[in-house]
Amino acid sequence: MVPPTTPARSVSEADLQALLDHRLLFVTGKGGVGKTSLSAALARLAAQQGKRVLLGDLDGRGDLANAFESGPLSFEPTKVANNIWAMSMDTEASMREYIKLNLKIPMVGGVGPVASAFDFLASAAPGVREILTIGKYCYEVREQHYDLVIVDSTASGHIISHLGAPDALRELIRVGPLLDQTSWMNKILHDGDITGVVMVAIPEEMPATETIELRDRLENETSISRAAVIINRVLPELFSTAEEEVFDRIITGKQRAALVDHAGETVEAVLAGATFASNLRRSRTQHIERLFAEFAGADDTVVVVPQLFVRTEGLRVTKLLATALSEEL
């Protein structure tokens, strides 16, 4: 059972290893929960173990470059750190690569016009765009170009249509190269030892609810496994019960005057700030408990990552988060 204020630390080093021993991880969660920073931090942890890691996004609009302070990323992976390569999805480039690898079509005047036709088809035919995006990462896994591929994915709702695209397409097409593509992709995607979804939440109402809903949808609508749940930005617990009592007495009693005497009038702002921090932590605790009840009980790996009181992006944050993750696990 979960104690009322401090979440159970149910994860072990073995859990961390199991997480990093996947070959393909999709990191998802509601907007603003820190998917990109955590994707980068996970990549860093794996790279520290000597794994060769590819980091990418699904729509070419990610912010992975920032997490490594690298220049702008492109479809061609760039080395951004020791053992880490990062790329930015570009559907057109992905199509060109796909056509080159899979369709033995003689190209008159280069791939250009064919790619634009293809782009149109991807807009018109259901599932094609998703197949090419997810397919690129599955391909990298299949060819063993990297030990681990981490995809900084879109918000929770959209990941289902991406991951379910091979199945959806299989219902619609009977023959052709895309059909073959869906079968080997599904072999990778449906193997829980290879592929997993990392669901990121923060301890607030909607992000927690969406994480639980995503779990249900993954179970009901796809055959894809969960790899871990990360509860990000957990505020430090300020006081133990005994300390809480003392804090309340100090700020409501005569002792307050002693603090003002010693530290000046503006100590009032300091006390107001501490009260705010304490209340904030208390109101968020229910969501940590809810997530633990939903996931830790069901044998999921649940990782708690503390709020970092530093700048919220950049290489420094990636490093600090990686440290926080490894300490937590």
Binding site: Q255, G264, V267
Partner: peptide, 30 residues
């Protein structure tokens, strides 16, 4: 409260004088 001028100094004083202040406010169950 977090951008109040002078409050940072108060926080510093609170930390610096924590031991001494704790003695002052102790007693009566504290």
């Amino acid at each position: 409260a977090f951008v109040t001028r002078g409050a940072a100094t108060s926080a510093k004083k609170l930390r610096g004088g924590a031991a001494e202040l704790a003695e002052t406010v102790s007693g009566r169950g504290i």
